[in-house]
Amino acid sequence: MRKAMVNAVSAMLRGHEDTALLLVDIGVWAFRDVLAAYPQRAKNIGIFEDGTVSLAAGLSLAGVTPTVYGISPFIAQRALEQLKLDFVYQKTGGNFITTGASYDFSTLGYSHYCPEDVATLRLLPGMEIVAPGTPEQFTALFDACWNDGRPTYFRMTDHCNQTRAAVEFGKAAVLRRGSRATVIAAAEALDATLAACGGLDVTVLYYTTLAPFDGETLRREYAGGKVFVSTPFYEGSLTADIMQALSGRPVRLAEAGVPLEVLRTYGTKREKDAGLGLDAPGIRQRLESFLRQ
């Protein structure tokens, strides 16, 4: 996905003189070509994410569309007030691409984890949140959003899905239809979720746009009075959107997500998934138990 991201951002820079790239001392090697080709507007500007997001807002307000690339917690949390005040309040557009996802940097510890980015940023009105699961999905979503005049958060992951699915910005993809429940899978949780659903009579919706949340598809595909949510985010990140979409209908809800805990384990991302019950067997167990209720 990183390669697709570098290609998409580089194509934007080549094609549009009123665009800029701000690196916070990561991705420097990957972006070496555009850093050399466009030194005025593609810069590794240093390690100060909060100020960087403000600088990006100044660019945006003066007619240059900025793209900032950083690590998820340092953009979504360190620079949260800058996203809120310098983009959302000013009503101006920009792109924030992050690496690290929830705990891709598993060995670096809690400081580098961000399973709360979606829950946090969805409270910024007008902020778009996309979480592609494959390189092709990154490209499709970036091309759809980078120049739409709104702030957009692109949550990348190094753990892409093998499942290919065509996605459209703002829309959930309907991957399977069944009658006993609607399963919502998001971002890189799709592969494990689909494996967990094997042989079960359930609908599977795949969300790569988390904000604005596609409630319409959920309402239309709502099956069996049950919603099972499987995401790599902190549990509860999508609950408000789901309940709002299904307002007025009886809903039974269960979830396989990251528990609201300070994660103190290391190892690999896969080991963490397994430890938290977010691998295919873990999700299957929760889903079967939910369907039996």
């Binding site: 800029a20 600088l55 807002a57 100044g58 660019l59 307000l61 003066a62 007619g63 240059v64």
Partner: peptide
């Protein structure tokens, strides 16, 4: 030029504007 209120935002935004002026 900006909606202000929280301190520490305007100057970096102004620097971004000056940078944009140079780019354009």
């Amino acid at each position: 030029e900006i909606s202000a209120g929280s301190l520490g935002h305007g100057l970096p935004m102004a620097a971004g504007m000056a940078w944009a002026g140079r780019i354009l």
